[in-house]
Design a protein around this nucleic acid. Structure first.
Lengths: 259, 259
DNA sequence: CATTGGAACCAATTAAAAATTGGTCCAGAA
DNA sequence: TTCTGGACCAATTTTTAATTGGTTCCAATG
């Protein structure tokens, strides 16, 4: 068998580690992806599986990879335990229901994000906001927008809350509403307004001002809701006043302002 | 082929319906379970599948059964699309994370409930609150308490929101925290305080005052949280003072975010 | 003596194939 | 007209096979 650099048996261990680090570092796997099987790696590197295994153990301990029996070895972070199970929980929700939930939950997440987001998170948010306006394609914009909202949710630093956000997100992204979304984003000035609101949210988070962040997100959600309602036109109208008549808006605001 | 009572072809329809109702009514299936396949039923009753089918359609329309292509025909209510998948999503969440989520979501549900709860819902709430104090067993109290909170969530009239509540509820009920819950409810005056707060919430909902309902629920959650923190004792202590400042009431979670 | 190679086997997972089951349609009989 | 029998489709479940990481053992190597 071909040995590594030296041919000395007890050096194969380091040789394997180096070669594997090359594979990962080279980014040939795009920082996410699946490594070849242990058996394949052993043959590729001309060493035994046992040695490959030990090298992988090191890399796993370092958090560079994660393994799953029967499945394979993967690069990057281990996926979230919750969101995996939510894959098929998608449809079956009324559109107004969804918006109502978003309107009440995302501001909460923005508040938490304002309390806990790290500088690097904020920097990422700014970057995403920039990418949204730089994209010429509407689909791309929607993609970046989704990423921004999720990053805010993630910055809230609460895994359970993030899982809940992911549930909502799945419902939101449902294919059935694709047409509605498209009509909604074609609204007049939708572009600029949306950008300004994103900026408000991000700056409030950067300033560590939970109340302002929550309120900014709430406004964002409200205009989004209005836009979507206009897009659907429909007879849903009667449900909207309830969500925002004199009965409540104070309540919500007061709740969150003091919160 | 053997015909039903009569032998007249056009009477098989009713015959099939009667026989099927017998099957369901007899409770041989325990009000939950799977019916024989359509083909088997057809043979059993000595009629064609088409007729069985039409009878089943009637029963389905009546809500007595539900069917799923490729799977079978079932007795009872169609299982909830969301909660089925949440069975094993339970554990893996930090306790403070859970309380943070409850603190921010249940008040929202209370607000919505205040806007939409029907009189009969309110009546049920009062009844549940009464049952809580009437129970001598602590476990029973916890059960009724859970029922009350869920009823409020249900009265919010938003299925998606209710599903989210159920996710949280599953996590909350996790066996791992049984000990913590027990210690928490043994606190001094926990009994009376809890009852007074429940009353506040329910009356606010009855008065259709979302702001007050939300605030009452928030207070309830806060004291519950405090009680739980005290129950875990731990080093969480220094986080409590934060929980009541004007700027950053929920700052308690700051140290867990990094973990 | 420690390390490596090679092999076999186990357990979890995935992928593919087969069987089951409700959904639909149609020509003919009662 | 209604019912029958059959065929076929599509979704689902069950079964089976193949893949893959996890583990153990032992001879060969240095």
């Amino acid at each position: 068998m071909v040995q590594g650099k030296t041919g000395e048996a007890h050096d194969n261990s380091n040789y394997a580690l180096d070669r594997l680090r090359e594979l990962l570092g080279a980014g040939e796997l795009g920082s996410e992806g699946r490594l070849p099987t242990e058996r394949a790696l052993a043959e590729m590197l001309g060493i035994s599986r046992r040695v490959v295994r030990r090298a992988l153990e090191v890399l796993e301990a370092e958090g560079l990879i994660w393994r799953r029996q029967g499945s394979g070895t993967f690069v990057g972070e281990r996926p979230d335990r919750f969101s995996e199970h939510l894959g098929d929980i998608v449809a079956g929700t009324d559109f107004m229901e969804l918006m109502e939930v978003r309107l009440r939950i995302e501001p909460q997440l923005a508040q938490l994000a304002a309390m806990r987001a790290r500088p690097r998170d904020v920097e990422k948010m700014r970057e995403l906001a920039r990418k949204i306006i730089e994209s010429s394609d509407a689909d791309a914009r929607e993609l970046w927008d989704g990423a921004l909202h999720r990053l805010i949710a993630q910055s809230a630093g609460n895994r359970l809350f993030l899982s809940i956000f992911d549930v909502i997100n799945r419902v939101r992204q449902d294919e059935a509403w694709r047409a509605v979304r498209e009509r909604a984003r074609s609204g007049k000035n939708a572009f600029e307004v949306s950008y300004a609101q994103h900026k408000n949210i991000i700056e409030a988070i950067a300033a560590r001002d939970p109340a302002r962040a929550g309120e900014a997100m709430r406004e964002h959600m409200l205009t989004l809701q209005e836009r979507l309602i206009r897009a659907t036109s429909m007879e849903h109208d009667h449900t909207i006043p309830n969500a925002d008549t004199e009965d409540d808006p104070e309540g919500f605001r007061a709740q969150n302002a003091t919160a």
